[in-house]
Design a binder for these strands. Structure first.
Length: 430
RNA sequence: GCCCAGGUAGUGUAGCGGCCUAUCAUGUCUGCCUGUCACGCAGACGACUCGGAUUCGAAUUCCGACCUGGGCGCCA
């Protein structure tokens, strides 16, 4: 019976393992094989004088990264990695690997990200890569656990939509039988419609599509968005929820992913401390003006140089609040006492933006006038606007970029490292 | 969309008009090796993105194409 490599200890006695041939060191009369499965690596030691013919012939034939089944006696040896090694009675080749390989799994020679992504299945055999996706999985698990524990309902909304509803970003057009359609940039409008349906608290974790021709380390054309919407809540309520969620996610990763963090050589993993500072937009602009040479003034978008400068000053997760209504989407609620400011916020990591959200406009007529003031035509929004005429509760929500969350959590240099099969300006395969 | 930098063995690199029959590492193959842990030693194998041009001579210069990385813009 096969057991996971991690659970083979000096006390195991005898064991059968299956895994990939990670490395071979043949000293002549003695050969060492490192066998890897997703739980770890064990050394298999073959004293050639004592080994059986079948073991010897398998050892001679096997290539690196082949899949093998090995069974034998576990010996406690200080000199071996993990303090134990397996001396095989049987050594069976289950699936042989060709050579040369498109990239070096052991990483004696580094490979460029592009080469790695071309052979992602091999790249992901490397413990430090698989660790990223173990952490990502834990992030997703913690997120849905947290939201379910707060009585959220999980929803799934269409990714194929009829029109460019939200404005802002470019959309991917697709052929939908005899009609034109698009891949959705955000579940925003659908989440809001479910507020009209009385679901009160919804979340969706799903893909979003942006057809921007950017070429940077923090943008993807297909990304994963963690989206929530809450009725009878304002922006402050959902900011608190977001802060609680981020802390919960970090805590869970810290508790449950120690092995993965070790593989990533992250020794100083820290859970961010609550409360996250809240910086008003006007002050953020002032900080940027002091720290960067590019001209920036009140009313401008915060570009990447400004984003970095402000992040450096803050040094931790923080919110930017009190945004000018003019530079936020039409569905952001203007403040009652000063409609030039709205109840929108961004959650920032020192490196970049992670999330943006707002209390939404729930009054039909105000929403129509805000759509018009953005230069959009309300007639194109009928499916979205109609629910606002039949008892739309006040509500607020946010969207959080899953890849950016994982990227900033693990200090990854490129957002593509946080996606198995990234879609960017040039990459459509695999 | 704009700008910059690149494309050399499977992988990562050096070379930047003649010292190139192209460096080094890793890999693969062969031989030697009983405690390796980036095992070691010896030998072999394997590459200048494509098309034009300049030149006595081009991996190296020029033009074009294709591909890639990054920055900016926009965007989350």
């Amino acid at each position: 019976m096969r057991i996971p490599i991690q659970s083979v200890t000096p006390e195991t006695g005898s064991a059968e393992i299956v895994g990939w041939v990670h490395e071979v060191r043949d000293l002549g009369g003695l050969a060492f094989f490192l066998i890897r499965d997703r739980t770890g690596i064990i050394q298999v030691t073959i004293p050639k004088k004592k080994a059986s013919e079948t073991v010897l012939s398998a050892v001679k034939e096997v290539s690196r990264e082949s899949v093998v089944r090995v069974s034998g006696v576990v010996k406690a040896i200080d000199k071996a990695p993990g303090g134990r090694e397996l001396v095989p009675d049987t050594f069976q080749i289950i699936s042989k690997s060709d050579s040369p390989m498109p990239l070096d799994v052991v990483e004696k020679v580094p490979a460029e990200l592009d080469t790695r992504l071309d052979s992602r299945f091999l790249d992901a055999r490397r413990p430090r890569v698989s660790a990223v996706f173990q952490v990502r999985s834990a992030v997703m698990h913690a997120t849905s656990d947290f939201l379910f524990s707060r009585d959220f309902i999980n929803i799934s909304t269409p990714k194929i939509v009829a029109a460019a509803t939200e404005g802002g970003t470019e959309l991917f057009p697709i052929a939908y039988f005899e009609k034109e359609a698009f891949l959705n940039q955000s579940p925003q409008l659908y989440k809001q419609m479910m507020m009209a349906a009385g679901f009160e608290k919804v979340f969706e974790i799903g893909p979003i599509f942006r057809a921007e021709e950017h070429n940077t380390t923090k943008h993807l054309n297909e990304a994963t968005s963690i989206d929530i919407e809450v009725s009878f809540a304002d922006h402050l309520d959902v900011m608190q929820l977001l802060e609680d969620l981020i802390i919960r996610i970090y805590s869970q990763v810290g508790d449950k992913c120690q092995g993965a963090l070790d593989n990533l050589e992250i020794r100083d993993f820290e859970v961010p401390k609550a409360p996250f500072p809240r910086l008003c937009y006007a002050d953020a602009i002032e900080i940027a003006q002091k720290k960067i040479s590019d001209p920036i003034e009140y009313g401008d978008d915060i570009g990447s140089a400004a984003e970095r400068a402000i992040g450096e000053e803050m040094g931790t997760h923080y919110f930017i609040v009190d945004w000018p209504t003019a530079i936020r989407p039409y569905y952001a609620m203007p403040c009652e006492d000063d409609p030039a400011i709205c109840k929108a916020f961004d959650l920032m990591h020192p490196r970049m933006e992670l999330s943006s959200g707002a209390q939404r406009v729930h009054q039909h007529d105000l929403l129509v006038s805000q759509i018009q003031s953005k230069g959009l035509n309300p007639d194109n929004f009928e499916f979205y606007l109609t629910p606002f005429r039949y008892g739309m509760p006040p509500h607020a929500g946010w969207g959080l970029g899953a890849e950016r969350l994982v990227m900033t959590m693990l200090g990854l240099p490129n957002v593509r490292e946080a996606v198995l099969f990234p879609r960017d300006r040039h990459r459509l395969v695999p």
